[in-house]
């Protein structure tokens, strides 16, 4: 489904990705992990065509994505920072994104109820709190029924109830047989929901496999410590 081949990217002098090879052809939840600045978001944005790699190729469902834009109809993406045009109301923004997608049958009503957003529908986006904006962001992401879902730090700013609802939502989508890519720094969240881990270190894929495999590789019984041991090894 996703085939990333030898992606290189540098920003100025800073080499972020140095030959990423990643093939994801199964369904399920993939957690993209790595220390700050390891290139998680850059990788995700390369798949979305927002960052243009210096070298390498990306294929989705067998088609090269370079210079294309139609393929984004089949991706639901949750950006890291939720910031919207301040003069629009929540409802207008939702309608607008629906209008921009060719896949019109969106499931926004259920999600609005799920995140209790009804009281905010007619409020301007500039007056919403960070957490509420993130909920709007989640509605915009999950209201379409695409085979590939990419979530960049989905838990930022959410209260505990919204957090639980998000996990339910992710599991529902997984049950529908979708592929979901998630980046997060909250290890308990990652451990709870993800099927496979993709660990990026120094611009390369350091590890790809399940959590038990990671634990046995690092000789740690605890997931958080397993991750930490990779990091301390790399820092040393």
């Amino acid at each position: 489904m996703i085939e990333v081949k030898d992606i290189h990217k540098k920003f100025g002098q800073n080499k972020v990705l140095e030959g990423i090879d990643l093939t994801i052809d199964t369904k399920g939840i993939f957690a993209v992990l790595g220390p700050n600045g390891s290139g998680k978001t850059t990788l995700i944005k390369s798949i979305l065509g927002m960052v243009i790699p210096d070298k390498g190729s990306i294929h989705l469902d067998g088609k090269a994505i370079q210079g294309e834009w139609n393929y984004r109809n089949n991706i639901d993406y949750l950006p890291q920072i939720a910031n919207f045009p301040g003069n629009l109301s929540v409802q207008e923004l939702i309608n607008m994104i629906k209008d921009l997608r060719s896949n019109k049958n969106a499931d926004d009503q259920r999600l609005i109820e799920l995140f209790r957003l009804e009281p905010f529908l007619n409020k301007k986006l500039s007056n919403l709190s960070g957490g509420t904006k993130q909920k709007v962001n989640l509605v915009l992401t999950f209201m379409f029924d695409s085979q590939l879902i990419i979530l960049d730090e989905p838990t930022t700013g959410l209260d505990p109830i919204a957090h639980i609802r998000l996990k339910q939502l992710i599991n529902e989508e997984k049950a529908k047989g979708k592929t979901i890519l998630i980046t997060s720094h909250i290890m308990s969240f990652v451990e709870e929901i993800s099927d496979q881990i993709v660990f990026i270190l120094e611009g390369k894929i350091y590890f790809k496999g399940t959590i038990p495999e990671l634990k046995s590789k690092t000789n740690e019984s605890d997931f958080e410590h397993a991750i930490a041991s990779i990091l301390t090894a790399s820092y040393a």
Binding site: R72, N83, I97
Partner: peptide, 17 residues
Amino acid sequence: YNSKEFTELLLAQPIKR
């Protein structure tokens, strides 16, 4: 500058740059 994040949201939608 004010609509930078929003532009990013649009860039992830199926629209030509």
